[in-house]
Amino acid sequence: MSIKDTNVTPRGDVFAERLKTRITAESPSDTNPYLTARRYTHGYELEELSTAVAFDQMIFLLLRGDLPNAAERRLFNALLVSFANPGIRDPAVRAAVTAAASKTEISSLLPISATIAGGSVGGGAEVSNAMRFIRRHRRRDPLHLAAEVCSVDFEQVADRLVAPGFGSTFGAIDPMAKRMAVSLANRCDEHPVFTWCERFVEGLTEQDASLGWRWWGVCAAALLELGFHPRTGVGIYQVAVSAGALAHGLEWRVRAYTDLPFVPEDDYILEGEEREPR
């Protein structure tokens, strides 16, 4: 049978006729079935939630199905606050700033920054990948694992990323990530994930003095401590970073585009091709 003669037949997939969800229940108004009389999130009625819980609790409820207990809330809130503003040098925030200064539609600032915040090196996907890495290896001796991941030969051009969430940052140990790991671990009554990761980091640093926690590894450890699944890591990171990105974007939306540095001709270096137009 040639690929030219490919015939197409229905796969016979059976599709649902209706949407279903565990998260939201809505009762219709008496007069219009498209309008909502009451909305419930995992069983809690909206008006009660709006008076009884804070935004961090609402996010936790949405993602986990239950409100956090006191210990969970302490750590989750600390996590969201810690990651809410990575600063203007962060690529996601810088994307929002660049878009805002160039007068991009304000409604696009968050999608733009959230997209960049989803990166697999220095973004939310690194959080999810680090969560997967930690989960996969947590039963192993962290010092042996550190020696093993450091033994892999690779061509080092920039950072040494020995595992998602762990390695060097700008060629060295990130001091804020190191402090944040301790600070977040101290927010937990028990912190088996942080304890394992700290041992792993000790092993890494023993192998190479430039290796330690990366910012996104700290986020991953905290989320695992809270019992989140790795697939949620990227999204929670994007949610947290969005606040800082939006704030910086709005700061820059009212500025002139000339307030944004533009690389001058002399510093725009064309490599390997003719500089003049042919």
Binding site: T21, R22, I23, A25, S27, P33, G43, Y44, V53
Partner: peptide
């Protein structure tokens, strides 16, 4: 494809109140 409230099947927990 607008959806009415009752076009959605809710399969989650029953209504409950926040434990304050």
């Amino acid at each position: 494809l607008p959806l009415r409230c009752d076009d959605i099947d809710y399969i989650g927990v029953a209504p409950r109140t926040v434990d304050r």
